[in-house]
Simulated assay, not measured.
Amino acid sequence: MPAETPTSLDLSADSVALTRAICDVPSVSGDETTLADLVESALGGASHLEIIRDGDTVVARTNLGRDRRVVIAGHLDTVPINANLPTRFETVDGVDYLWGRGTVDMKAGVAVQLKLAAELTEPIVDLTWMWYDHEEVAAGLNGLGRLAGNRPDLFEGDFAILGEPSNGQVEGGCNGTLRAEVRAAGLRAHSARSWVGENAIHKLAPALTRLVEYEAETVDVDGLAYREGLNAVVVRGGVAGNVIPDEAVLDVNYRFAPSRSLAEASEFVREFFDGFEVTVVDGAEGARPGLDAPLAQQFVRAVGAEARPKYGWTDVARFSALGVPAVNFGPGDPLKAHADDERVALDQIRSTEHALRAWLTGAAH
């Protein structure tokens, strides 16, 4: 039975209860308005925060005159729901979890951020909090990208943290990503007289063979090992059950180390599928770890985390492109992101909140 959508968010609740309330507000990409409205309303009474709204992106920032500013961001949207809402509590192998869509990617991180934004009236640095829309879809729709175009001044900072799931560890930088269409052309014919046509689907076979035989690299970037991946994700083709197809398209996703630019990655894919028509339809630069920045090193020490690479693409890349060092730090196992059994350990929600609170108040050194 669907959970009743809350009419308000209680930011005084503990971070686990707040995570559950946020997750039970469906916000699949393109449908974030209700949750964005709740976030804006919940923060509206905080006198220490300036609130800015851009579409379904909400920004809250302090203006305390501190000599350093940290930007902390999280996305409000999720991938589509698949019978995994409303949320529920469950225990697996002695570990208590909150189960349901968005618990890992990344509403637990959003809940922690919201609670801290409301409660930290005197942080040791000025803070800019961002909760944005359309992260889980094409890069051109990303609310953070839109905000950067509309209000680049909001991105000014000395360090940035993305609350993406990282098992409570610090994940530096991120891989880049691109999607490409590999197209084969044929000639239509009746399938009873197939010899007079050319089967476009069959012509994709060499491209698929190359992918099967490809061994992805692991690339060292500033001391972190980034695993790459080149994979077929969709195959499209066919006209009818009795027609030889005249076109077939293979959708490929390439996750590349941040030592390679998007242009270089695009050229690699075109060369890899030499002999085919290749069109890059979407892409985003990766980000180098950024852990050489003094504030980043201080943060890693303060939260007692281990620095690791981020394999998936995240919006740390947007901050990196603006010259702001950024890391991923949030509750949840990335392997459970987008999974039908998506679930976050309750202890990770609490420990992430504790670590961030301690660092931002100066209690951790």
Rank of each mutant, 00 (worst) to 15 (best):
R20I: 09
S259H: 11
V234C: 12
L9P: 01
H134M: 14
S12D: 15
A138N: 09
A265Q: 05
G286D: 03
W99F: 15
H190F: 09
V327T: 05
P2A: 11
T103P: 00
R69M: 09
G332W: 02
S320L: 09
A248S: 13
L162G: 05
V16C: 10
R227C: 07
Q169G: 03
V327L: 08
R288Q: 10
H48Y: 12
D222S: 15
P152S: 07
Y132E: 05
R88M: 11
V79N: 02
T78F: 01
T33L: 12
D292R: 15
R301E: 08
G65M: 12
R343G: 06
E136S: 08
S194M: 12
G168W: 03
V219M: 06
V212C: 10
Y226G: 02
A284R: 03
R88A: 11
D96W: 03
L116C: 05
T34Q: 14
A3Y: 00
F273H: 10
S261F: 12
R151H: 15
A184H: 04
R288F: 03
R318I: 15
L346A: 13
T5S: 07
E306I: 14
F276Q: 04
R260G: 01
G157E: 02
G100C: 04
I201Y: 03
I201V: 15
S261H: 12
G223K: 13
E90W: 04
Q348M: 11
P26D: 06
A180W: 05
N142M: 14
V324K: 04
G290F: 08
A46T: 08
T7Y: 03
V344C: 10
G312Q: 09
